[in-house]
Simulated scan of single mutants.
Amino acid sequence: MENPTAPKAGAMLHLRGNTLFEGDPVALPLTQSSMYHLPGDWTGGPSYGRVDNATWEHLEHVLAYLEDAPTLAFPSGMAAISAALFATVKAGSKLLIPSDGYYVTRRLSERFLQNLGVEVEQRPTTSFADGGFEGFDVVFAETPSNPGLDLCDLRAIADAVHAAGGLLIVDNTTMTPLGQRPLELGADVVAASDTKAPGGHSDVLMGHLATRNEEILQAAREWRQFGGGIPGPQEAWLAHRGLETLEIRFDRMCSTAQVLAERLAAHPRVQAIRFPGLASDPSHGLAKQQMLRFGFLISVTLDSAEQADAFINNCPLIRAATSFGGVHTSAERRARWGDAVAPGFVRISVGTEPAEELWNAMAASLAALGS
């Protein structure tokens, strides 16, 4: 793969440990304070809980190591995406977003950005570069797309966007910095939901933005500070703890997803399947070029909405839930949220269960659909 290798996970685990003095706690302390002691004139240290917090600052330190770029933490993935957009567009700007990406990004753009004078255009992921990027101030890409798992060529898009004078933001939620590195492929900004695999335990909302563009970074920091969209210290502590096991969980999830996808592709109940790791997938060639791993999401299409619900609900090792990236395998019928997919379309988020045990449970649930 052409994409540079991910940061070393062992070094990530010791970023804080290698700065400790005798008697310091090894585990990250939780700084739960809205106020700081400020006698006399302020000298530039921590001043107020909406501006400074040692717990979320260390979370940012670890995320910055993973992204190899300055990073800001936010209380959700959409808070990070909002900061990326509000830091780069203004009235009169022209914005391009994917028509088949995460639906909340579309709703944010249509409901609010358009009302503030931003011109918003949409294109499908597979033809995202068609028509070029002349006139666009900001291009927002998502690859693999959620939930369809289509890909677009990030390096080619970044080159074309920059040649046209624009900025490229990439939503890297589905892959994490361990699976895909958009900044190395030319993106100006990466935004992601750490609610998913980085947090990993379905118990915290968190997001981050990473960029090497100091002007964008400062604008996003001011958007967070003045708008008040800050992460809570308890949530930041949980997200940091999740990051400590990300490499282990992500490796297991991606490896198991490959096994399951190959078996699901051959199952008679599965009408269609999308997984970038399958040689038969239309995006497989591009995935090999720009992704370090093929991810842990699988999309399958069954005969009907009824079969999709039965497959999910009758499998004891699948949790019926929205979102993805947890240690528990989860799935949902995405048509219920209005995505432009078939009624029987199911997005599966592979967890950390043993592969054979998980497959046996899935196979039994699929077999029961005909009974």
Rank of each mutant, 00 (worst) to 15 (best):
R334G: 08
G232Q: 04
L151A: 12
A331D: 15
L13E: 03
Y103H: 14
P316Y: 10
G285P: 08
S371Y: 01
A87N: 04
S299W: 11
A83G: 06
R274K: 15
L264F: 09
A305C: 10
S349Q: 10
S299Q: 15
Q234L: 06
P233N: 00
G370N: 10
G229T: 05
A11H: 05
S304C: 07
H58W: 09
E356D: 14
E119G: 00
R123Y: 02
T126E: 15
T329V: 01
L358A: 14
M291Y: 03
S283F: 04
F275P: 03
G199W: 03
A321W: 13
D41T: 07
A239I: 00
P39I: 04
T322R: 10
K288L: 11
T125Y: 05
A197W: 07
V341N: 10
L66A: 09
P70S: 08
R263E: 08
F250E: 13
G92C: 01
Q180V: 05
G165A: 11
A272G: 01
T31N: 01
P147R: 12
E142I: 15
I318M: 15
G227P: 02
T211A: 01
G101R: 08
P25G: 03
V51Y: 05
H201W: 09
I157D: 10
A279Q: 02
E214W: 06
S109K: 05
S109F: 02
G148T: 15
L286C: 04
Q32H: 04
Q307R: 08
T105N: 15
L209G: 02
T19L: 08
I97H: 04
E57M: 06
I230H: 00
A91M: 00
A141P: 01
G186Q: 01
A192Y: 08
W359K: 10
M175R: 04
S330R: 15
N314A: 14
G44I: 01
Q271Y: 02
F140S: 10
T195S: 15
F136V: 11
F294T: 03
I348K: 06
A156Q: 15
L151R: 03
G229K: 07
R224W: 00
V190R: 00
L167V: 14
H328F: 03
A164Q: 12
E110C: 01
Y65E: 09
N3C: 11
M253W: 13
P198H: 05
